[in-house]
Structures are given as structure tokens and as C-alpha cells.
Simulated assay, not measured.
Amino acid sequence: MTPEFITDMMERFKNGKTIHKKYVYQIIIAVQKIVYNEPTMVEMEIEDDVKLTVCGDTHGQYFDLMELFRLNGLPTEKHYYLFNGDFVDRGSWSTEIALLLYAYKWLRPSSFFLNRGNHETDDMNRVYGFEGECKAKYNERVFKLFSESFSALPLATLVGKKYLVLHGGLFSDDKVTLDDIRKLNRHNQRQPGQSGLMMEMLWTDPQTEPGRGPSKRGVGMQFGPDVTKRFCENNGLEAIIRSHEVRMEGYEEEHDGKCITVFSAPKYCDSTENKGAYINIGPDYKLEFHKFDAVPHPNIRPMVSFSSPLNLGPC
């Protein structure tokens, strides 16, 4: 993988073209090997001359991702990126986003990070467009390779021992620690199922009331500010950073600042007037929030070619 290949690929995607299947196969297979060998919770530090950008859901909104990169800069050896799941589904350019993120992971395996989201799963891909998009633009084998690679992705990233970044949220049991995440063998369970640590990491949401409550999604549960406070205190964390839900300003600080949501798909599904956001973190580990607006894209409705019916429910 080279920067020149990625630049050419980005331009092809902007112009509505695909890349040859042989390159698609190579990219997915190479990245699956890299991420399979990463721990379930990747642990990284931000060095003195480095900046980390944390991005939330992109959901196939390729042209908005291009705007994020235009505003904030492309990934480099000194500009790390972490994409916190839900790269695919709903938007109509999910293969483009997945291939671009994978190409950067192959190019910069130690400075470009990917967490799994609840949409990097077979059942969601079947309903919300990604499986159909893979078959329409490439073939069934491409979807199967992506499916295998999604199941190999890490579930969380620990940034400077201060911030736990994971797609959904916290747990039904207060006894869960970072060590439990470290010990979780995600390779024993390709799909998250209906219970357990993996499901909760991908699916849960914060609530304003203390304690825990039922999920509005029908999967997982909701956790209150007291749950977040205990988890952060027990594990020596300043905050958790999660995605998984639209926020009208692109991000939100909840639970006394200890639960931060970042969502990077502005004007989500062309139906919500939300901004997108990303978080920059420097070596001082201070969080800088940046908002951005959606940009025009070719006139293709979300998922219109790939899935039926059009379902715009929760992220």
C-alpha cells in the first residue's frame, strides 16, 4: 500500500468509479491479518509531536468523510486517526469508506486505529445495505471477506490510560474492568449475539437517570451517570468516548463530562439536520471538539440501490 495508491483511489471514488476486485481482495485480506493480531483493547499513547483524531459513525457518507479530511488533514505518521465503528450501512458509499479506512490501516498499522461498531456485523449489514452494496458494486465474495475482517476488529482503544474509546457504552455489571476487556477473546465469537461483554460494548447507550434501564433499541441496555462515574473511578479513567447515536451538534458531553458521544455523519441519512464532529487529542490529552457541516453528494438516496425497505431507525 502506498500514499499514491490511496490518493488515486480517493479520486476514483469521488468520481463514482470502483477499483479492481483484485485490489479489493488484497486490501481486505491484508487488513484482516493486521487487526486479528491486535488486542481486543488496543492501548496507545500520544507522543510529544503527535495528534490523535477520534471520529464517530461515518455510515457510508463518503463525501462527508472527505470534508472531514479536508478540514482536519489526512492521516500521517504524526497525525493518528481512530474511527470508532459504524463505517458502513445506511449511506450509499459504504464500500468506499471501508476500503479507504482499510487502505490507511494497511499503510499505517501503528498509527491508524479501527474499533468495531454494531454495524460491522452480518445481521445489520443484511438489513441496512452493506451486503447489498458489496454485491452490487463488486460480488458476494467481497462481502464475505469484509464480514470475516469485521469480526477480527478490536472492540475498544485505551488512549493514554485516560480515555476508553468504544462504540456503544458500558456494562450491565459494575464489576467489569479494563482487565476483563483485555482478557475477552473476541475471536471465539464472530458476532455479538444478544448478551455478554461484546454485545454491550457495541450496543449500550447512556441515559440521564441513575442506574440502568431498558434499551430503546431492543438490544442491550442504558446506563446512568452513576454507572459511568463508578466505572471511571474503578478503572482510573477520565472519561469514556463513544459513538453509536446521532447528536445534533455532532458531539455531546454527558454524565458530568465522563461520557462523551462523537458522531461524524452530518445530516445523517439526508433526513436529520445534525452536524458532524470529531475530537482532536494532543500529547497533553486535552480534548478539542470540532463540528462540521454536510457537503453535497451525488443524488443517490441512502441505501436506495442496495436494500429494502428503507429503514432510518436508530444508529
Rank of each mutant, 00 (worst) to 15 (best):
K22S: 09
E200M: 05
E96A: 07
F87Y: 13
D64K: 15
G16V: 12
P210M: 09
Y104E: 01
Y80G: 00
N72Q: 05
F87S: 14
I181L: 03
P210Q: 14
T121R: 11
R190D: 14
V219N: 07
H244L: 00
K258W: 06
Y36A: 14
T53P: 00
T121Q: 09
C315I: 08
C232Y: 01
V159I: 05
K229N: 14
E288F: 15
T18F: 13
I300K: 15
Y163I: 03
G196C: 07
N115S: 04
F150S: 03
G16S: 15
E233M: 11
E140L: 12
F171K: 05
H79E: 00
A265L: 08
H187L: 15
V159L: 00
V295E: 03
D226G: 12
A30L: 01
F292S: 11
M198A: 10
N280M: 14
A156H: 02
S264V: 09
C232D: 05
G313Q: 07
N234D: 11
N280R: 14
R182P: 02
K22W: 12
H59E: 08
L158G: 02
I181E: 01
A294V: 06
Y268E: 02
G313L: 13
N15E: 09
A239Y: 05
G60I: 08
Y138H: 10
S264W: 07
N274R: 06
K51F: 12
Y23N: 13
N72R: 08
V227P: 11
T272L: 09
A30D: 01
T53A: 03
N115W: 00
P283E: 07
S94R: 07
P296E: 13
E38S: 09
P3H: 09
P210D: 13
R186G: 10
E43D: 04
R182A: 04
L178N: 01
D293S: 08
G169L: 01
F223T: 10
N234V: 10
D89F: 08
D57I: 05
E249A: 04
Q207V: 13
F13P: 04
P154L: 03
N299M: 03
E120S: 03
H59N: 08
L197H: 04
K21I: 11
P210A: 09
P266R: 04
K275M: 00
K51N: 12
Q222S: 13
